[in-house]
């Protein structure tokens, strides 16, 4: 069995070959360590550094790159599946009832405003969104804490799925829409004013869209948190206790 210092040397060797992430390195370190141990069994006098040199020459740079690429692809796929499962869970029982109720509330919103004024329906809408996104411990905060605790670079934390980009784009679009609306609502020639009036973008439609966006955003946050938690369980040595 190789000593810790020798394992560290193998880790550095992998790092020098472009495998700088701990979660990819571990598998390769074990593989190279096994190869070295085998060589030393067959050739008792072979020193560790010579064995590492021989084993290192058996690998090409392209092989290291291929391993990192395939791991990245696998992790991206894994996280995407987690997000999809989380998202669809909002449309299957028991969460479905909450989702349907929220969408019905969006449809009834303008009538409620006419009946009891803007504030109570608005606060209720905000409460529904807070309930959907924050009824557990804030996921993004927990994910950030896990990320901050890591001691070494991890490929798992570099993974970005297409859903995160979609969330960012919707966030920006909503922000842009509200800025335009605020700056041009008073003028009949304003862009947001024209969008609202000419594209039949009703209040219900906007509220439903925002609700849909929050569900997607929650799915991304929950999945990320669960993904990071799993990483923390799998690689406890990579995190500060």
């Amino acid at each position: 069995m190789l000593a810790q210092e020798q394992i560290n040397q193998i880790t550095s060797f992998c790092g020098s070959k472009g495998v700088k992430y701990y979660d990819v390195q571990m598998e390769l370190v074990d593989h190279i360590a096994n190869m070295i141990e085998q060589k030393q069994i067959l050739e008792v006098d072979l020193s560790f550094s010579n064995a590492l040199g021989i084993v290192g020459n058996e690998f090409t740079d392209a092989e290291f790159t291929a391993i990192v690429k395939s791991e990245r692809r696998k992790l991206t796929h894994k996280m995407s599946r987690m997000i999809e499962n989380e998202f669809f869970s909002f449309f299957t029982p028991p969460r479905l009832s909450l989702t349907v109720a929220s969408f019905i509330y969006c449809l009834l919103f303008p009538y409620l405003v006419n009946w009891i004024g803007i504030w109570i329906p608005l606060i209720s809408y905000a409460s529904i969104i807070v309930f959907i996104s924050w009824y557990q411990k804030p996921p993004s905060e927990e994910a950030r804490l896990i990320k901050d605790n890591v001691l070494v670079p991890m490929l798992s934390f570099k993974i970005k799925t297409r859903y995160e980009y979609i969330v960012r784009i919707i966030e920006l679009s909503l922000a842009l829409y509200f800025i335009l609306y605020r700056t041009s609502a008073s003028s009949s020639t304003g862009l947001a004013w024209r969008i609202t009036n000419q594209m039949i973008l009703s209040m219900q439609g906007l509220l439903m869209f925002a609700m849909f966006f929050f569900i997607l955003s929650c799915s991304v946050n929950y999945s990320k948190r669960n993904f990071y938690k799993k990483i923390m369980e799998n690689y406890p040595k990579a995190f500060a206790q």
Binding site: E27, L28, F59, E63, A66, I67, S70, R73, K74
Partner: peptide, 15 residues
């Protein structure tokens, strides 16, 4: 089997 062929394949099968 080379490592450059084995691990990408194992990762693909896991995916």
């Amino acid at each position: 089997i080379t490592e450059g062929a084995l691990y990408p394949l194992l990762h693909k099968l896991e995916e």
